[in-house]
Write a protein that binds this DNA or RNA. Structure first.
Length: 460
RNA sequence: GGAGAGGUGGCAGAGCCCGGUUGAAUGCACCUGACUCGAAAUCAGACAUAGUCGCAAGGCUAUCGGGGGUUCGAAUCCCUCCCUCUCCGCCA
């Protein structure tokens, strides 16, 4: 299963290269040799199919003669040598196919037309800004200082029981996390029309392939080791032996094939993997509150303090399945739904249109919402809302039947954080801090905090 | 963990014991046409997906949970893995 449509790539090679080139010259270069490989593959397929056709004809003749009671030995002998020849051609075709798949699976989605040019975060374009950063008459502190002073956040205990990049929340801090999750879910299900889902937090390999995390980004994920070591070795042997990506994708679980989800996008998008939806059902909007687990390999020394970059954090995710016609309008709506949370909590933010070079692997277009953090004096990503067009749908085989049409088409998938709860937590702590180190609770959140208006240090 | 049953097209469901025009009966849904002012009902027809060859018409190849094997030929036989269901055990 290809990430980009093979026929489309072949027919529009120059155009595809040009659009991929917007992500960087090295990306477009991945398609070098594509034509040669494709030619090799097709000629091997044609040869193999001709031989198979011959074999099938002979078999049909054998069947006819046997039914009539005639002798078929002469015909049966005709296939001598065919079998080996077929096997050789099929192997050639499979080898070429595998090489192409290996290349294509590494290639990211094509950027949408409305994506700005650029190579790094520097080139992202600010679309709009909401709210005014509050003027402090004292020096605002970062959340890790405030949290530890108030006794609602404990990194030492987390390091002891788990390791680096984990946190323990206490008392009102724990409740604040729970309040935020409930508040967000209520708004999305009540006002924005999303259905609430509680999905598994562990998924199989096929799901991760479907949303684009695998095969390229295995190093970012936590994989559950099978206590049965022999089973694991057996699985890896199979992977080597038959492991073209496509058959592995279909071969749902080789052993206990479980990975911790890096985002609810994975289980939610895969809800409809291999399904054919009715156009009447679309758009489908779902939301879920889940933990997210990220290895953060390669992030050593980055954001080491505080809650910004954790191995486990919680997030409310928004996912939509839409028709191609709806997708860009729905992308704007989904982004607005995430923004509505920030607005209700009165947290200043800005919306960034990511440039081609900063776009994620699977995305055609992404808006990042960046919240103002006075304790660190910067805007920080708190939500990422993307349109994947048919990229994930093709990999996960999610189709729909347009009304009045017989042929199926791939849906477009969208998702966004609505919001990352951990980062919302710290945004509240930093933006609502008072001179005495207490945190006032945003009005919208107070009902979810049992009426609590302020988090103060415990007296005891 | 133990024992059994099963996985077939959008869905339901035959075929598998006894391998041979079976890409797969039948029903439902969907689509087209007729009838109708329109709709329902009825009747008639069409109706899998992907790859590949071809300007096209149209061929050809593959696919009956995944992989492998036996055979001239596999949905049907053999091996293996996965999944689902039922019963027993254990457990939040």
């Amino acid at each position: 299963m290809l990430m980009l449509d093979l026929g489309y790539v072949r027919a529009n090679l120059a155009r595809v290269k040009e659009r991929l080139g917007r992500r960087g010259a090295d990306v477009a270069a991945m398609l070098d040799g594509f034509e040669v490989l494709d030619l090799k593959r097709r000629s091997a397929i044609t040869r193999a199919e001709m031989l198979k056709a011959e074999r099938n004809q002979i078999s049909a003749e054998v069947a006819k003669r046997k039914q009539k009671g005639e002798d078929a030995a002469a015909w049966m002998a005709r296939t001598r040598g065919l079998k080996e020849e077929i096997e050789r051609c099929t192997a050639d075709a499979a080898a070429a196919e595998q090489q192409m798949q290996a290349v294509l699976q590494q290639i990211p989605n094509l950027p949408a037309e409305s994506v700005p040019a650029g190579t790094s975060a520097e080139d992202n374009v600010e679309v709009r800004r909401w709210g005014t950063p509050r003027a402090f008459d004292f020096a605002p502190k970062p959340h890790w200082e405030l949290g530890e002073q108030l006794g609602i956040l404990n990194f030492e205990q987390a390091a002891k029981i788990s390791g680096a990049r984990f946190a323990v929340y206490w008392d009102a801090g724990a409740r604040l996390e729970r309040a935020l999750a409930n508040f967000m879910l209520d708004l999305h299900t009540g006002t924005h029309g999303y259905r609430e889902v509680l999905p598994p937090y562990m998924v199989n390999e096929a799901s991760l392939f479907g949303t684009g995390q695998l095969p390229k980004f295995a190093q970012d994920l936590f994989r559950c080791a099978d206590p049965d070591f022999e089973a694991q070795e057996e699985s890896e042997r199979r992977e080597r032996e038959y492991g073209d990506e496509d058959s592995r994708r279909k071969d749902r679980a080789l052993f206990n094939d479980h990975w911790m989800i890096p985002t609810a996008e994975v289980p939610l998008t895969n809800l409809y993997r291999d399904d054919i939806l009715d156009e009447k059902q679309l758009p489908i909007s779902v939301t879920a509150y889940t933990p997210c687990f990220r290895a953060e390999a390669g992030a050593y020394g980055k954001d080491v303090r505080g809650l910004v970059r954790q191995h486990q954090f919680q997030k409310v995710e928004l996912v939509k399945f839409v028709t191609p016609e709806q997708s860009y309008a729905e992308h704007e709506r989904l982004t607005a739904h995430a923004e509505a949370i920030l607005q209700a909590l009165e947290l200043p933010y800005r919306v960034m249109n990511l440039c081609a070079g900063d776009l994620g692997f699977s995305a055609a277009k992404t808006y990042d919402l960046e919240v103002w953090l006075p304790g660190q004096n910067l805007y920080r990503e708190i939500s990422s809302c993307s349109n994947f067009e048919a990229f994930q749908a093709r990999r996960a085989n999610i189709r729909y039947r347009p009304q009045g049409q017989k042929k199926t088409e791939f849906v477009h998938t969208l998702n966004g954080s609505g919001l990352a709860v951990g980062r919302t937590w710290l945004a509240i702590v930093e933006n609502y801090q008072q001179a005495d180190g207490s945190i006032s609770i945003p009005t919208a959140l107070q009902p979810y905090m049992g009426g609590l208006k302020s988090i103060e240090a415990r007296s005891s």
